[in-house]
Design a protein around this nucleic acid. Structure first.
Length: 1034
RNA sequence: GGGCGCUUAGCUCAGUUGGUUAGAGCAUCUCGUUUACACCGAGAGGGUCGGGGGUUCGAGUCCCUCAGCGCCCACCA
């Protein structure tokens, strides 16, 4: 026999335990999934974290929830696959590496060249992938680590190529123009995310365009206003509103409405706007109307400086209430003008070279930079008298985040995915519930976004990503194109399955030949290139490969057994900001590639915000590394804490603190201190560094981790469970497995079984429906308040009783066994650790004892046994707990020392007697009560402190002879009486209300009546006691 | 500007289809180291459920409205 005292340590040392356990799981391949026709599969693919940086708490939450589902399903007997991996995150990762390159070596990517830069990024990826996977493992994520994928690995690349090739063949990808944010310094396009608007002092230049051949009564010239006069060189029209009168009318009525509602403070402002509008209608409307008619007649104006006639067009973009009411249209260099150009059908005139100088279209301004061109254009306009007023004005100018230079909107050739049919399919699959989205409200955003059916621009002017598998030659004459086609035909030969090409006609009538190759390293590449075709340098949008993630990771386009078995996946758990970018695209791509859905359900979990309500991010300094939480609180506490907070209505607000590395004091993070390189601990005055530390001196200081005390509850819970388990284990000496006859069990054991049955049901259903917070709460309350505070307490006297000991051990072992299983998905390490110790003292256990599995992780999920649920026992136990509570209350109010037993007499019904009589011993243990009498005729004591229990017909009488503090007791009773009277009055009023009695359901009225009569009884009893005490005290 | 949420104790949040006296954790106060646990136990104080209106016998819960906060999308010559 072993010495049970030494079996289980007094404390759960999570750091050592977790590492050892993770290793054992790993060795036993607990999380490895194989194709197994005997079992049903259950699959989740991880939302692949970006390799940009380390994981933060948002990932912590995301992966905790996935692991809870996966672990539950694994225990339920499914062949569970949780596919892990990371995302190459094109622009973000390239930007990070380029920034570091600049900082540490003062090099740009052009200095390195494409190949070398990509090599550097791969090195970065290796480093962060390792870090990320390490974080996931430390959290206990039971991914299948033998299957780790990366969105840029060979398998994903094959899927990307196959998909692009397929879409190209179906003519669902096409080449089009798109305005990109052009960084003239880095000579690259940057994504919208990397553009920041900087407010600057600028000017608003008014410029006149002469009307060509004005008729009498018509305006001789048109006045426009612009913040960027040099773009006039690329103008291809001047626009005016098609119905200026009505547009002004509408604005006027809106303003009028606003004036009525405006606060006193706003009123003068609104009034001013109205005045301006009125003036505008008087002075400008006439001209605008005429211009509008002229536009309808196809009249032209003369573009100054270049003397190029351009049309007057009518378009709603020209808002008559703004500026001069007319607007110049530069489709190639302004997003809005681009839209107008498309609507009206205008030429798109690019006037820029990639380096930001003007090209030949700019005539004599060719070669000038934009700032210089602006000065020249303004000066020349002034000279020829076409320059009007110059207003000072604050303007928002887009700047590149990376080079800090102004962005130029620049029209470039891009590849697009045609969305109409693809989007429609993805919408239909959600509409008909083939893919279910939880919580439901997120369906709308998904459907609305897809409903716009905007084509998806997929080219990115980057080096890090899947290079577009297109070779092309453009600017060809018709005959050149025909020749090239013949040459291509020869190369293609009979093999039309892996190579396709198209001939496009550009706006300028030139031809372009575009070839798409299906396979990587196709031998024909060089033949194609020798014909003068060049590979498109651009890469695909990161989301293109992410969209294939669920099937590409399983081997598609190969028809692998895994794909056949594990696909479609079961559920996707992700954050709401990528429902459109990612979720929607996975659905449509899966449908396009395989004709099936990628997953059956999508669960959208909340976001984690900091204490100021802001999203966490590294750039703000409020990001929390799960590892820091694990160091301080342990992995189980991290997981439980996150699950506890993950309700589906609210984002998680989590105040964060710095932890002083010297004294462990927590210092609240504020907007101010979160951007400091070093801080001083207010308690111990030690200095510590933060993530912003830059100087050598600061970096040398110990680093203060960013943590949150919100995990304390969870850490305490882990400790509580550990200690309850210790108690059980320390009392298992002499344990022998025995078959348990449930019907013959004493009440307290049947109560435990009943509760276990209920809790099992709640937890199982809760996981099924993604109610993670609810599941956590149910488990917390049951484990703490019922298993520990109640069952274990009751077990103490039973274990001391030789007649009851063996049975108690058997039931207790079963109870702990079940509890460990239920808690395992959310707290894998501590449960696994305890499971190991329990296996040593009670290797066979259960109601019909069986040998326990080596790991709780691979044990069988508990079943809710309907026959164990016993409503009347649960209700009776609630009564018992109320009696206990009542006695404790009076002990506290009378300040009775814990060692003093308190005589009690309990007056209650016959049926309550049946329950309470066998519980005498427990009343002593739990409440320090010596039970003198229980039953219908139990009498009050001479010096009585009565405790009447609402809604159950019980009076607890307490003999206070030894203890009584009359004043304290009287004040307690009077307070109680006041409370009772208040309630009674309320009930009486309610019951005297004719319409309540007649309209409310019978059972509600009955309930009120019976609770009123209980209250009245209690009042009488309390009044009697007050009287008695008063007499006695006099 | 459009959409979706949120507003409940000092703080962070629960509150199922409307139905006894609105709950939890943390924090605060009082008492307590009885051999699982002070990361503990017992108890207490603390809320006119953002404001206003409505529906109903009855509203934290349903409807309207106002205010504040957050997120997503669009837009700002």
């Amino acid at each position: 026999m072993m010495n049970e005292e030494s079996t289980i340590p007094t404390r759960f040392e999570h750091a050592e335990a977790a590492e050892a356990i993770a290793q054992k799981w790993d060795q036993a391949k607990c999380a490895h999934a194989v194709v197994n026709p005997d079992r049903k599969p259950f699959t989740i693919v991880i939302p692949p974290p970006n390799v940009t940086g380390a994981l933060h708490l948002g990932h912590g939450l995301n992966n905790t929830l996935q692991d809870m589902v996966i672990r539950t399903k694994r225990m339920q007997g499914f062949e569970t696959l949780w596919m892990p991996g990371t995302d190459h995150a094109g622009i973000a990762t390239q930007a990070v590496v380029e920034r570091r390159l600049k900082e540490s070596e003062n090099l740009t990517r052009h200095d390195l060249g494409r190949e070398e830069l990509v090599k550097r990024i791969w090195a970065w990826k290796d480093q962060y992938e390792k870090r990320i996977l390490g974080q996931l493992k430390r959290m206990g994520c039971s991914c299948d680590w033998d299957r780790v994928r990366f969105t840029l690995d060979d398998r994903c690349a094959a899927a990307v190529r196959a998909t692009f090739f397929d879409l190209f063949g179906k003519q669902l990808v096409y080449r089009g123009k798109r305005l990109v944010n052009w960084d003239t310094f880095l000579q690259t396009a940057v994504s919208d995310d990397e553009v920041e608007n900087v407010t600057q002092q600028g000017h608003f230049w008014h410029i006149f365009y002469d009307v060509i051949d004005p008729k009498p009564g018509e305006p001789a010239r048109v006045e426009i206003a612009t913040t960027r006069p040099e773009t006039l060189l690329g103008d291809t029209a001047v626009a005016v509103h098609p119905d200026p009168a009505r547009a002004l009318e509408k604005v006027a009525s809106e303003l009028a409405a606003k004036l009525t509602d405006a606060s006193e403070k706003e009123k003068p402002l609104v009034q001013k706007q109205i005045d301006e509008l009125t003036k505008r209608r008087e002075t400008m409307l006439g001209d605008l109307k005429k211009l509008c008619d002229m536009a309808a007649d196809g009249r032209m104006v003369m573009l100054p400086l270049l003397d190029r006639p351009i049309p007057l067009v009518a378009d709603v973009w020209a808002k008559p209430e703004m500026g001069t009411g007319c607007v110049k249209i530069t489709p190639a260099h302004d997003p809005n003008d681009y839209e107008v150009g498309k609507r009206v059908g205008l030429p798109m005139l690019n006037i820029l070279n990639p380096d930001g100088t003007l090209n030949a279209e700019a005539g004599k301004y060719q070669g000038l930079t934009i700032p210089k061109a602006r000065i020249a254009v303004v000066a020349d306009l002034d000279e020829i008298g076409l320059l009007g007023d110059i207003e000072d004005r604050e303007i928002e100018l887009p700047h590149s985040d990376r080079s800090k230079t102004p962005i130029e909107p620049y029209l470039a050739d891009q590849w697009f995915v045609k969305m109409d049919t693809l989007a429609e399919s993805a919408m239909q699959l959600v509409r008909d519930d083939s893919v279910k989205i939880f919580p439901q409200r997120f369906r709308k955003g998904y459907l609305d976004w897809l409903g716009e059916k905007r084509d998806w621009p997929v080219s990115r002017q980057l080096w890090w990503g899947h290079q577009i598998p297109i070779w092309s030659k453009t600017g060809l004459s018709q005959s050149q194109a025909e020749t090239l086609v013949k040459e291509m035909d020869a190369i293609v030969g009979d093999d039309k399955d892996s190579i396709r090409y198209q001939v496009d006609i550009a706006e300028d009538e030139t031809r372009g030949v575009f070839v798409c190759l299906k396979g990587e390293g196709d031998a024909r590449e060089s033949a194609i290139e020798s014909l003068g075709l060049e590979r498109d340098p651009d890469v695909l949008d990161t989301w293109f490969s992410s969209a294939l993630w669920p099937h590409s990771t399983l081997g598609w386009p190969e028809k692998t057994p895994e794909l056949d078995y594990f696909y479609p996946t079961n559920t996707l758990i992700t954050s709401r900001d990528i429902i459109t970018l990612w979720v929607a695209r996975m659905v449509l791509m899966s449908w396009n590639n395989l004709g099936v859905i990628p997953f059956r359900e999508v669960f959208i979990h909340p976001k984690i915000l900091d204490g100021l309500g802001e999203t966490m991010s590294k750039s703000k300094g409020n990001g929390v590394d799960p590892n820091d939480i694990i160091d301080k609180f342990g992995p189980d506490a991290l997981r439980f804490g996150l699950a506890w907070l993950a309700t589906d209505t609210q984002d998680v607000r989590m105040p964060v603190q710095y932890e002083c590395p010297a004294c462990e004091k927590l210092i609240d993070q504020t907007r101010k201190n979160r951007s400091q390189p070093k801080l001083e601990c207010p308690a111990c005055k030690a200095s510590f560094s933060t993530q912003w530390a830059e100087t050598e001196a600061d970096k040398a200081l110990p680093k203060g981790a960013v943590v949150s005390e919100r995990f304390e509850t969870a850490r305490n819970f882990v400790n509580k469970l550990w200690n309850a388990a210790r108690f059980v284990l320390m009392n298992m000496e002499g344990y022998k497995p025995q078959t348990i006859d449930v019907d013959a069990l004493p009440l307290e054991d049947r109560w435990l079984l009943s509760r276990l049955s209920t809790v099992t049901k709640q937890v199982t259903e809760g996981i099924e429906t993604y109610k993670f917070a609810e599941v956590s709460r149910v488990l917390y309350d049951f484990a703490w308040d019922e298993f520990c505070s109640f069952y274990v307490e009751i077990a103490k006297p039973r274990l001391a009783d030789d007649d009851q000991r063996a049975l108690t051990q058997a039931v207790m072992a079963h109870g702990l066994d079940t509890l460990l299983k239920l808690l395992h998905p959310v707290m894998p390490f501590v449960t696994e650790s305890i499971w190991g110790y329990l296996g040593e003292v009670a290797p066979e256990r259960g109601l019909s004892p069986v040998k326990a599995t080596p790991f709780v992780m691979t044990s069988k999920w508990p079943e809710s046994i309907a026959g164990h649920y016993d409503e009347s026992i649960e209700r009776q136990f609630a009564e018992f707990q109320q009696v206990v509570g009542a006695i404790r209350k009076i002990r506290a109010s009378q300040n009775i020392a814990p060692r003093e037993t308190l005589p009690v007499a309990i007056r209650c019904s016959q049926s309550s007697t049946g329950l309470l009589e066998p519980m005498r011993a427990y009343l002593e243990g739990l409440a320090g009560a010596e039970v003198i009498a229980i039953g219908t005729d139990a009498k009050p004591f001479e010096t009585d402190g009565p405790l009447s229990l609402p809604s159950i017909d019980i009076d607890v009488h307490v003999d206070l002879a030894k203890f009584i503090d009359v004043e304290a007791e009287l004040s307690r009773l009077e307070k109680l009486l006041g409370n009772l009277v208040k309630q009674i009055t309320g009930k009486q009023q309610k019951l005297n209300n004719e319409s309540f009695v007649s309209r409310a359901p019978e059972e509600v009225v009955q309930g009120e009546r019976s609770s009123l009569s209980d209250l009245v009884k209690q009042r009488e009893s309390v009044e009697g006691d007050i009287k008695r005490l008063r007499t006695k005290s006099i």
